[in-house]
């Protein structure tokens, strides 16, 4: 009886681990963590998504685009300081170095969600799919955060 329970536990553990891997990383070498979207008043039709992209492979990974069911358009943007002002511009891609990571964070890179189809409330989970140059896609569940 005890052995059966243990087997059952191991099985469930294994299955949940598999589904985790499928949800968070198509390629076993790229992991997305701390994915979140800035909560916005419902009148706003835009927001930004942030996350950490970790690349455990010996090859550079290049994020080329993103998409989400929640927004008509998703673009890679980069904030930077220009002439003493913060400037936001589209970025063609984000290079994630081999055995390295890149943090998308306020003041740096973000995935801009444009023309939101519904309001983003704190605590909502937003799926965002990242498209890499090698053709791999990773869907990540980002949580909507306020303060």
């Amino acid at each position: 009886m005890k052995t059966k329970n243990l087997c059952c536990f191991i099985f469930i553990f294994f299955v949940s681990f598999l589904s985790y891997a499928r949800a968070d990383g198509l390629s076993k070498d790229i992991f997305i963590s701390n994915a979140w979207v800035q909560a916005m008043p419902s009148s706003q039709k835009i927001s930004a998504a942030y996350m950490v992209i970790t690349n455990n492979s010996p090859k550079e990974a290049i994020l080329v685009s993103a998409s989400s069911d929640i927004a008509a358009t998703a673009e890679i943007h980069q904030m930077s300081e220009m002439n003493g002002m913060m400037n936001m511009a589209m970025a063609a891609n984000v290079h994630v170095p081999a055995q390295g990571k890149v943090t998308l964070q306020p003041g740096g890179f973000h995935i801009m969600l444009i023309n939101l189809k519904k309001p983003l409330n704190k605590g909502d989970i937003i799926p965002i799919t990242l498209h890499f140059q090698d053709g791999s896609n990773i869907t990540v569940n980002a949580d909507v955060r306020g303060q």
Binding site: Q38, Q44, I46, A48, H77, M86, P106, G107, H110, M112
Partner: peptide
């Protein structure tokens, strides 16, 4: 108000 990064981050 349509500022996506700096303004909501600052207000938060």
């Amino acid at each position: 108000t349509s500022c996506p990064d700096v303004c909501p981050t600052t207000l938060s």
